[in-house]
Amino acid sequence: MIEFHLDARSGVSPYLQLVHQVRHALRLGLLDEGDQLPTVKEVVGRLAINPNTVLKAYRELEHEGLVSARPGVGTFVTKTLSDDSLAAHGPLRRELQRWLVKARRAGLDDESIEALFRDTFRTAALEVVA
């Protein structure tokens, strides 16, 4: 069983934070096939959030095929997230580290690096859409 938390300052909507936390737990192997997610009542009782927020997150996860709801019983994990993406993390991380070293050498501070990343990310996303 996992426990949710919310970051009020992240700017990410609470329902998405719940979705991300489940996906994250699946990737790290904290959640496995057959595991039960906390009930809606447990989540709202802990986080003091609207029950619809939890329902929406669980519906989204269900839509992605990661969990399934058994009425009157609870919501259960039906799929683990593949290790393929996890395996790719290592090389990508090393590449990013090398890039960061280059960026610092070029005189960029943390804020400029973040701004550059965000800007490039956004432009790239737009190009994919276009």
């Binding site: 709202v44 009782g45 802990r46 003091a48 609207n50």
Partner: peptide
Amino acid sequence: RREFLQGLMEITSE
């Protein structure tokens, strides 16, 4: 305040 809202949300979920 938090405890009150937790209780209230439990009620609305039930």
